[in-house]
Write a protein that binds this DNA or RNA. Sequence first.
DNA 1: ACTGCGATTTGC
DNA 2: CAAATCGCAGTT
Length: 192
Amino acid sequence: MNPVSEEFFHQSTIDLAKALLGCILVNETNEGITSGYIVETESYMGPYDRAAHSYNNRRTKRTEIMFGKAGLAYTYTMHTHCLINVVSAGIDEPHAVLIRALEPYTGVDLMTKRRPVDKIKNLTNGPGKLTKAMGITMEDYGRPLFEPPLYITPGIIPEEIMEGKRIGIDNTGEARDYPWRFWIKDNLFVSR
DNA sequence: ACTGCGATTTGC
DNA sequence: CAAATCGCAGTT
């Protein structure tokens, strides 16, 4: 399957977060190819979203890539984990979509080798888990997600999309209640 | 639900 | 330097 076009990323951050559901995230590394269906995402709208790193257009070395064009990867380290976001919106609009969970597709052997688990369900059902299973690191910061080695391809069309409050952002005032988390209904690999 | 772990970034 | 952080795993 070929990557999506760069134009795919040219839609509003909310629309992009929904459009990514059912798409396949692929990573080609020296160890082999892994991929998985995206089943859960969250939108972060920097300028007016207290929960975003780029809130109030805060521009630092870390957030710099979000001010760039849509379709780039924004990776960052959180505790001991690496998390991956898709940069959204236009130049100088620091929006992003966090990829929170995947359903493993190809390269499951390699993923379980990188991240041993007792049940497959626990392999990629969280943002820090899926990056480790797929071998995504800070090396991928700023990579375009519409060409190899790390890219998105069309997958399936979700039957029904659910939406709700985001996770892990409790101390951020009103922003915590914004319904900017999206997931595929009844999918086993959604994080919670 | 509640802990401990833990490292990078950021602001004081 | 100290505080904060878009998690995870293991235990009540």
